[in-house]
Each structure stands twice: as structure tokens, then as C-alpha cells.
Design a protein around this nucleic acid. Structure first.
Lengths: 190, 190
DNA sequence: TAAATAACTATAGCACTGCTAGAATGTCAA
DNA sequence: TTGACATTCTAGCAGTGCTATAGTTATTTA
């Protein structure tokens, strides 16, 4: 009875094509241009088919967001140079985070700005999401007694820097200096 | 020839009613429910009239955002308790900022999240916007050599905290602790 | 193999959006 | 009173997310 397996496989493939198309369109022309009609056209099916895969448009954004977390976690972890000090590690992660946010704005928006239906810090929070938070916690931990609280603060700082820079509200040229300043603060307050 | 003056006055009044209606609707039901049709209905004119006042919907958001800055600046300045130390002043401003963001989410969104057409850190940046930045700089200055850079970092941190908390991504219950942690860092790094 | 059933997919439509061309109305000076 | 101007509205476009319904295809049963 490999027939239902084949169908499931085909459905999973199609779902991946929807997510891929959404990601591609969003990165090319922004999320506003990711419409259900356009996605349907892209995967060569009619619109209602998409609603057999996702409850609504937000759920598609959520699926892309999840892929984003699958990327960001490893990016952060691998950004730390070999033999880096604790402070250097923190700086590496911070810079990697900001580069990700600026270079993949559509993905970053899906993850942190747009309504995506993703639940954070809950029992059903996906693993890739926990991993990403863990990657940040790993470089904060050496300096702070209350690691979870400090990581929230660290993450918030990075997110704020990313958003204000993305919207042109702070000077892009001084990214490195701001990161240095912040890491200095987090690291000196042991 | 007071006739054209009267017309200008009436136009200004109507413009204010549009902005007021947008602000009210956004705070009541969120920005998604602020449609040009609904605003037109609210001010008892037809839709095209709104386009005689604002180039497009974003410009209306921008006008509300500007009002927001007119509120936030004074809120931050008056939040500092009399006789507060420099560190206490920083904490007061930080808490006031976050309270503003959480209690006035629609206004905050217009100011910092939605496309509003407002230009920051440019020669034509409105005064109320500079004032708000100045209010933050005032409490950062005592601790940092490069005040502008440090203020960008401080502001980014607050913005990140506000956004992550607004979206339920960090634990609301620990706001005060996070602020204490951050102020401690900014203040101890003199 | 033919009919019945179930699974799938498309057409067509709803109610809504931002925005605008052109018609109708009102206001004023000649 | 008439013509010119400014103001305002009606009606419509092209688009959105989403869905009821009809139609087609695939699978199972007789």
C-alpha cells in the first residue's frame, strides 16, 4: 500500500514548494507582494489548494519563520571564532545576528515582526526556536548569574538594534561601535 | 479677506479630526481596522476628501506617529523623579518608555514599526522627534563619553524590550528586573 | 469490468482594501 | 443671472484573503 505514502510525500513536497515560493517572493519583493494568488500561480495550483496546507496567510508566514529559526541558530553558533574569548564570542554572535537581520530582512520580519502564530517560551515552542535562544544564552551565561534574564535583555538589545537599523533610525555606519559598546557592558558586569 | 483664513482653519480642523479618528480607531481595534473608508465615515466626508489632506494611508499613520512623539518626549522627561540620581533617572526613563509602548501599542506601532514616511536623524527631522531622542540622551550622557552612540544603543535596547514584550516573546513579569539589569550595565560602565 | 464512492481541485464569488476619474454640486465674482 | 472656479460625491478599478459549490479524477466496491 505505497499509494497513500506517495500522496503524503507529494503533499509534503507541495507544501515545501509553497514555503519556498513565499520565502523567495518575500526576499525579492517584500512580504506585501506575497499574496495567496501569486503563491498559487507559483506552484501551479488554484488558491483553495493552499488552504488545504495552511489555515491562512499568517500560517505561511509562520512556516517561513520556522525555517528562519532553522537557519539563524546554526549561523549564530558557527559565528564564534575558534579560540575566541567569552567577550569575543559574544561580539561574534551579536554581529552575526545583526548581519542576518540586515541581509535577510524578509526572513527576519517573518520571524520577529509579522504576525506568524509562533509561540515563544511556551511548552509547545519548536526546537529550532529554543536552539536559537540557546545560542544566545551560551555567550551570555559566562557573565551573568541570572542567564535567562540576561539573555532576554541581550536578545532585546540585538532585536532593537536590528529593527532601528533596518528602518534607518540609527546610523548604519556605527553598527560595530554600538556592538562593541554593548558587549563591553554585558561582559564587564560579571 | 478673512474668508480664505476661515477655509484654511476649517481644513486644519478637519485634518485634525482625521488624525484623531485614526488614533482612536487604532487604539480601539488596531491599525488593521483603520481603513480610509472608515475614517471617511468617521469624519462624515467621502473618501476622496482624505486624499486632499494626505497623500496616502501611510501619511495618516505618519501624522499619528508625529503626535506620538509629541507625547512621548514630555512623558520621558517628566518621568524622572525629583532628586533622582543619574542611575535612577535612567531607570525612570526606561520604565516610562516601556510603559508607553505597552499601554499605547497603536501609537507606538505608528511611531516605530509601521511605514510612516517619517525621516529620522536627517536635516528635516521634526523637532518633537529630536526632543524625544534628546530626552533619552539626557539620562545616558552622564555615563558615556560618546553620548550619541550610547543613546542609540540605549534606545535600541528599549525598543527591543518593548517589541519582544509586546509580542509575548519575553516574560512580561520580569520587565523591572531586565530594566534594572540594563541600567546597571549602562551606569556602571562610566 | 462497470458502477458507486471518496478524494481532490477549479471556478466563481463574497466582502473587503487603497485609490481615482469624472460627474455633480455649491460658491463666488463679473 | 451667468460663467468660472473650487469643493465634494458617486461610481468604479484592480487588487486582497478567503470559501461555497461544482466538477473532475482516482480508488474501492459490486
Amino acid at each position: 500500500m505505497g499509494i497513500s505514502e506517495r500522496k503524503e510525500r507529494e503533499k509534503a513536497e507541495r507544501e515545501q514548494r509553497i514555503i519556498g515560493a513565499a520565502k523567495m517572493l518575500a526576499e525579492k519583493d517584500g512580504w506585501a507582494s506575497v499574496t495567496v494568488r501569486r503563491l498559487a500561480q507559483e506552484i501551479e495550483y488554484s488558491q483553495p489548494v493552499l488552504y488545504a496546507h495552511f489555515e491562512n496567510r499568517d500560517a505561511i508566514v509562520g512556516a517561513v519563520a520556522l525555517e528562519g529559526f532553522g537557519e539563524l541558530g546554526p549561523v549564530l553558533r558557527s559565528s564564534v571564532r575558534r579560540g575566541a574569548s567569552a567577550a569575543q564570542a559574544m561580539e561574534d554572535v551579536a554581529m552575526a545576528y545583526l548581519e542576518f537581520a540586515i541581509e535577510r530582512p524578509a526572513l527576519y520580519e517573518a520571524m520577529f515582526v509579522l504576525p506568524s502564530g509562533l509561540r515563544f517560551a511556551k511548552s509547545d515552542t519548536p526546537q529550532s526556536l529554543r536552539d536559537t535562544f540557546g545560542a544566545m544564552m551560551a555567550v551570555v551565561e559566562p557573565f551573568c548569574a541570572n542567564a535567562e534574564l540576561a539573555t532576554e535583555a541581550f536578545w532585546a538589545t540585538l532585536h532593537g538594534l536590528a529593527e532601528l537599523e533596518r528602518h534607518g533610525r540609527i546610523r548604519t555606519a556605527f553598527r560595530k561601535e554600538r556592538v562593541a559598546h554593548i558587549v563591553d557592558m554585558f561582559a564587564s558586569k560579571s
